[in-house]
Amino acid sequence: VTLFVALYDYEARTEDDLSFHKGSKFQILNSSEGDWWEARSLTTGETGYIPSNYVAPV
């Protein structure tokens, strides 16, 4: 499992996005959609889309 960590805070703009804070960790579920990845937050357990340029591999 590849884990990613948030580099910045992000406020969701749609109900499909995940809001998160810098330092939040994610499991990436689908990275084939270009700049928006489907991810599960390891902090909240919620699933949604995150901007790929806001995260980096742990």
Results as ranks from 00 to 15, higher is better:
Ile50Pro: 01
Trp37Gln: 03
Lys25Ser: 07
Asn53Ile: 09
Thr47Gly: 03
Asp17Gly: 15
Tyr8Ser: 06
Gly23Asp: 05
Val5Cys: 08
Asp35Pro: 10
Asp9Asn: 08
Asp9His: 06
Val5Phe: 09
Phe20Cys: 02
His21Lys: 15
Gly48Trp: 03
Val58Ile: 13
Ala39Leu: 02
Ile28His: 00
Glu33Gly: 14
Asn30Asp: 12
Pro57Gly: 05
Lys25Glu: 09
Asp17Phe: 15
Gly34Ile: 11
Glu15Arg: 11
Phe4Asn: 01
Phe20Asn: 00
Ser31Met: 15
Leu18Glu: 00
Ile28Trp: 02
Trp36Phe: 10
Ser24Ala: 14
Gln27Asp: 07
Pro51Ile: 03
Val58Asp: 09
Pro57Lys: 08
Thr47Pro: 02
Glu11Cys: 14
Asp35Thr: 10
Gly23Glu: 03
Ser41Trp: 04
Arg13Asp: 08
Glu11Lys: 11
Thr14Glu: 09
Phe4Thr: 03
Thr43Gln: 11
Asn53Glu: 10
Lys25Thr: 12
Glu11Arg: 09
Leu18Cys: 04
Thr47Lys: 09
Thr2Glu: 11
Gly34His: 12
Glu46Asp: 08
His21Thr: 15
Leu7Ala: 02
Ala6Phe: 01
Asp17Glu: 15
Ile50Met: 02
Glu11Thr: 13
Ser19Ile: 02
Pro57Ala: 10
Gly34Asn: 12
Val58Ala: 09
Gln27Val: 15
Thr44His: 04
Trp36Cys: 08
Thr44Gly: 04
Glu15Tyr: 10
Gly48Gln: 02
Asn53Val: 09
Asn53Asp: 10
Ser41His: 11
Asn30Cys: 09
Glu38His: 14
Glu15Ile: 11
Arg13Leu: 11
Thr47Phe: 07
Val5Asn: 02
Ser32Val: 10
Leu3Asp: 06
Tyr8Ala: 08
Phe4Leu: 04
Gly34Tyr: 09
Tyr49Gly: 03
Ser31Asn: 12
Ile50Cys: 04
Ala56Asn: 05
Ala12Met: 04
Asn30Leu: 06
Asp17Cys: 15
Asp17Tyr: 14
Leu29Phe: 07
Ser41Thr: 05
Trp37Cys: 04
Asn30Lys: 09
Trp37Ile: 06
Arg13Pro: 07
Leu42Phe: 07
Ala56Glu: 10
Tyr10His: 05
Phe26Asp: 00
Trp36Lys: 11
Glu46Cys: 10
Ile50His: 01
Arg13Cys: 13
Ala12Ile: 02
Asp9Tyr: 04
Phe20Glu: 00
Lys25Asp: 02
Lys25Met: 15
Pro51Cys: 09
Glu46Phe: 08
Ser32His: 10
Asn30Arg: 08
Ala12Phe: 02
Trp37Val: 06
Ile50Leu: 07
Phe20Met: 05
Ala39Arg: 01
Glu15Leu: 11
Thr44Gln: 03
Asp35Tyr: 15
Tyr10Met: 02
Asp16Pro: 04
Thr14Val: 07
Pro57His: 06
Lys22Cys: 07
Asp9Arg: 04
Ala39Asn: 00
Glu15Trp: 09
Val5Thr: 05
His21Leu: 14
Pro51Lys: 06
His21Phe: 13
Pro57Tyr: 06
Ser19Pro: 05
Glu33His: 14
Asp35Ala: 11
Ser19His: 07
Tyr10Lys: 01
Asp16Arg: 15
Pro51His: 07
Ile50Glu: 01
Asp17Ile: 12
Phe20Tyr: 01
Ser52Cys: 12
Glu15His: 12
Ile50Asp: 00
Leu18Val: 05
Thr43Asn: 09
Asp35Ser: 10
Ser52Val: 08
Tyr54Ile: 06
Glu46Ala: 10
Tyr8Cys: 14
Ser31Leu: 10
Ala12Asn: 05
Ala12Arg: 09
Tyr54Phe: 11
Val1Leu: 13
Trp37Asp: 00
Thr47Cys: 10
Phe26Cys: 03
Leu42Cys: 14
Ile28Phe: 03
Gly45Phe: 06
Tyr54Gly: 05
Lys25Gln: 12
Val1Cys: 15
Leu18Trp: 05
Glu15Gly: 13
Val55Lys: 01
Arg13Val: 12
Arg40Leu: 13
Val55Gly: 01
Arg13Tyr: 07
Gly45Gln: 06
His21Trp: 10
Glu33Gln: 14
Gly45Val: 01
Asp16Ala: 14
